[in-house]
Design a protein around this nucleic acid. Structure first.
Length: 350
DNA sequence: GACTCGTGGGA
DNA sequence: TTCCCAAGAGT
């Protein structure tokens, strides 16, 4: 029985159990001198913000296939990047991804900063991502504190202060445990531990490399940690979208403003979304609108949406008041955020 | 510190 | 169905 968790024990576990990921350089390869590509590590870390590895995988492969270097990405068109990101969520990440790529490509000679502070100054890179890229891509000693690390630290030290107030204390715990040796592997090891062993529900304490040092396991409190301050209930918002199809098959779409929900994404024109039905709003084009029998339901981070879908078929010469027609050959539903994709597929069920 | 900002999967 | 939540950042 040990009093303190040892980084070496976790690294030994990681050497045997590291998860495979398309962007990851495993412990064995790293040992043989192979270092990760900072561009790919950065890309993966942006995508992984509040997003599961499973959801990220295909997006990562498509992005790096289409834009193999940071310079390629910097030269991409905004609409192509937003379209490729569609469906992954948190679209400010995609806007900042492009901003960051352009800074690196045009102001830093295409080379990512190799320090936490240098990375921290770039768009879309906060405390977590700066530490992750510095440690994983450059093997610099930096303390990553994500949801996994918060959970692992809260349990190791049986810390009951609820998040987010507990964050500074948990960060100190994590900082004290970070080793000088193999900081990159260690960062990934703690997160792998949180993702596979020290899970939010039903943690597998019996096979945990840190079981002998874990206070919460000893106290039997592991599954109730970390504590969190209760969250507010999600209100229901209502709205309407208009899906106009021109007789030649073109669809009427609009580019949403960069700021706000689904910023920078392509979408159907429509009303604002409010908790009380919006009295009346301008139609995007004059037409005979028909309401679909089923509404599109979708849940965002902080509200539920019930979307009324109206459709119309319009003649070639009719000019829209809102949005622009996109030729059928140029329209891919996969360019739309999920909520608008749902609305679109409802028009196909008829 | 409190809000905003997506989505899909699992319990 | 509903709730939780996942490698957070920006304002």
């Amino acid at each position: 029985m040990r009093d303190q968790p040892k980084a070496a024990d976790l690294l030994e576990w990681y050497d045997r159990h590291a998860r495979k990921m398309p962007w990851r350089v495993g412990p064995a390869e790293r040992q043989s001198g192979i270092m990760p590509d900072p561009y790919r590590i950065w890309m993966s870390e942006i995508m992984l913000q509040q997003t599961t590895v499973a959801a990220v995988k295909d997006y990562f492969l498509r992005f790096t296939e289409r834009w193999p270097t940071v310079t390629d990405l910097a030269n991409a068109r905004d609409e192509d990047v937003m379209g490729e990101w569609a469906g992954l969520g948190y679209y400010a990440r995609a806007r900042n991804l492009l901003k960051c790529a352009r800074v690196v490509a045009h102001e830093l000679d295409g080379v990512f900063p190799d320090t936490e502070t240098g990375l921290r100054d770039l768009p879309g890179i906060g405390p977590y991502t700066a530490a992750a890229v510095a440690s994983i891509a450059f093997d610099r000693k930096a303390t990553v504190v994500d949801g996994n690390v918060e959970r692992v630290m809260a349990r190791i030290y049986d810390h009951h202060t609820p998040l987010p107030a507990a964050k500074p204390a948990l960060t100190e715990f994590a900082d004290a445990l970070t080793p000088d040796q193999r900081p990159g592997d260690y960062a990934q090891a703690v997160m792998d531990l949180g993702a596979t062993i020290c899970t939010p529900k039903n943690p597998a304490c019996g096979i945990c490399p840190w079981r002998s040092a874990c206070r919460a396991r000893i106290q039997g409190t592991a599954s109730e940690l970390p504590k969190k301050t209760p969250k507010k209930p999600k209100p229901i918002r209502l709205g309407t979208v208009y899906i106009a199809r021109r007789v030649d098959g073109a669809y009427l779409l609009e580019r949403r403003p960069d700021q706000g929900l689904l910023g920078g994404m392509l979408g159907w024109p429509g009303s604002d979304w409010a908790e009380t039905a919006v009295p009346d709003h301008q139609l995007p084009i004059r037409a005979e609108w028909k309401e679909l029998p089923t509404e599109a339901r979708h849940t965002f981070t902080h509200f539920h949406l019930r979307l009324t879908v109206k459709t119309a078929l319009v003649p070639m010469d009719r000019k829209p008041k809102q949005g622009d027609f996109i030729e059928l050959a140029d329209f891919r539903p996969s360019d739309l955020p999920t909520v608008f994709r749902k609305a679109f597929y409802l028009t196909k069920d008829l």
